[in-house]
Amino acid sequence: MQAVGLEERVVEFARLLRENGIRCTVAESIDAALAASLVGTEDLERLKQALRAALAKDPGRHRLFDYLFDVYWRGAWTAIQVPGRRVAVKVEVEAGSPVERFLSIYSPVDASWGEPGVDLPSPSQARALYRSLVLLRRRLGLEEGRRRVPRRRGMIDFRRSMRRSLRTFGETVRLARSSRKRSKTDILVLLDVSNSMKDYWPWILGILNSLRRLPPGSYEAFLFSTRLVRATPLVEAAGGAEDLRRFVSRVEGLWGSGTRISQSVEELLENYGPTLHRGAAALVFSDGWDLGDLRQLEAALAELRRRVGFLVWVTPESPRRDAGGEPSTMRVIRRQAHLTIDLETLLNTRKLLRLLPRLTG
């Protein structure tokens, strides 16, 4: 790599850091370019340490710096790929052919079809997505908060009992009871980016962009097709919608591949167990097309349902079951998911509100 090209990349990387909240001056950028010219790009770990020393003086920003470095210098797919070698095959077939339809549903190899070079949803659609996510967090109160609310049944509340006794001149006529209010919910989002979902990639980017507005630590995001990728670091590192689209577009061998729902869920259960708990609501956005073993899928979804507090499955459209428009996997999904809705229902907060159970106190 030529020195001029390396200097330009360092300047562009410094601009990316500033856009995401890491302050670095022109002098620090010059020091970083000099350090990069001395270290080179053969050993990216040494380059990361050199650039971190020059551009990220605040230790509290080192984690964000590492995410941005991996996204920019290594490529997002290298930074967050699962262990093991994988084969990515570029497939060119005639549009609308049976082969294309088969590979869009399932493929024994990672049939990569491209990157999500699509537009984000409109501002009104983005607001609807965000309102729906907020509604899910508020309505599905799965974790106990610090506040206590009066209950007919529950633990004896001595403080309220003493206050109530003042009305009867110190005589405790009836004991007050209360319990902790359920008011907190973590959102776990699994988004299908296979080729059969290609028409809905803008909505997937919109969901990821809406997660950025939620409090940090209250969500986890995953992308899946023939494998599973944790996208939370990309969402946290993005400074805006365009950054997010650029980051997720670099996840190679994932967008437009086949679909392996059961294997992806099993990978989630095995490798990301701490993100699964009874205080989390899992939201899966997928059309359910998968030609894998139905028993394996049902077992994986049953375990996912057992570990989380609530499982919502969102389909792109409402299929006509009487016309054979629903895949056989959807029957398994409907048995295991607490709630199965389409995208239109997700965007309609009034309709969604009627369907969601009220678990909060």
Rank of each mutant, 00 (worst) to 15 (best):
L175H: 14
A176V: 01
A176K: 09
R177N: 10
S178K: 05
S178V: 07
R180Q: 12
K181P: 01
K181L: 15
K181Q: 11
K181H: 09
R182F: 14
R182E: 04
K184L: 12
K184Y: 06
D186R: 05
I187E: 06
I187G: 06
I187D: 12
L188C: 14
V189G: 07
L190P: 00
L191I: 09
N195D: 15
N195E: 15
S196R: 03
M197A: 14
D199W: 08
P202S: 07
P202K: 12
I204L: 03
L205T: 00
G206N: 11
G206F: 12
G206A: 13
G206P: 06
I207Q: 08
L208I: 07
L208T: 01
N209K: 11
L211Y: 04
R213P: 10
L214R: 09
P216I: 08
G217C: 07
G217F: 02
S218V: 13
A221V: 06
F222C: 03
F222L: 08
L223K: 11
F224H: 09
T226E: 05
T226I: 02
T226A: 03
A231Y: 00
A231P: 02
P233H: 00
V235N: 02
A237P: 00
A238Y: 09
A238E: 09
G240M: 04
A241H: 01
A241V: 07
E242V: 00
L244A: 04
R245Q: 02
R246V: 02
R246C: 10
F247I: 04
V248I: 04
V248F: 05
S249W: 02
R250H: 11
R250I: 05
V251Y: 06
V251E: 07
V251D: 10
E252P: 12
G253I: 03
L254Q: 14
W255M: 01
W255H: 08
W255Q: 03
S257N: 08
G258S: 08
G258C: 09
T259M: 14
T259S: 13
R260M: 04
I261H: 15
I261T: 14
S262M: 06
S264C: 13
S264W: 10
V265T: 03
E266M: 02
E267R: 12
L269S: 07
L269H: 09
E270S: 15
N271E: 13
N271V: 01
Y272K: 15
Y272F: 14
Y272C: 05
P274F: 03
P274S: 00
T275V: 08
H277G: 07
H277A: 12
H277Q: 14
H277V: 11
G279H: 14
G279D: 11
A280F: 02
A280S: 13
A280K: 01
A281R: 00
A281G: 11
L283N: 07
L283I: 15
V284Q: 00
F285L: 05
S286E: 06
S286C: 15
D287C: 10
G288R: 15
D290Y: 05
L291W: 01
G292D: 15
G292K: 12
D293I: 06
D293H: 10
L294I: 13
L294V: 09
Q296S: 15
Q296R: 15
Q296M: 13
Q296F: 13
A300R: 01
A300L: 06
A300K: 04
A302R: 13
A302M: 02
E303M: 14
L304C: 06
R306K: 12
R307D: 11
R307M: 04
V308F: 00
G309R: 04
G309I: 10
F310T: 04
L311V: 00
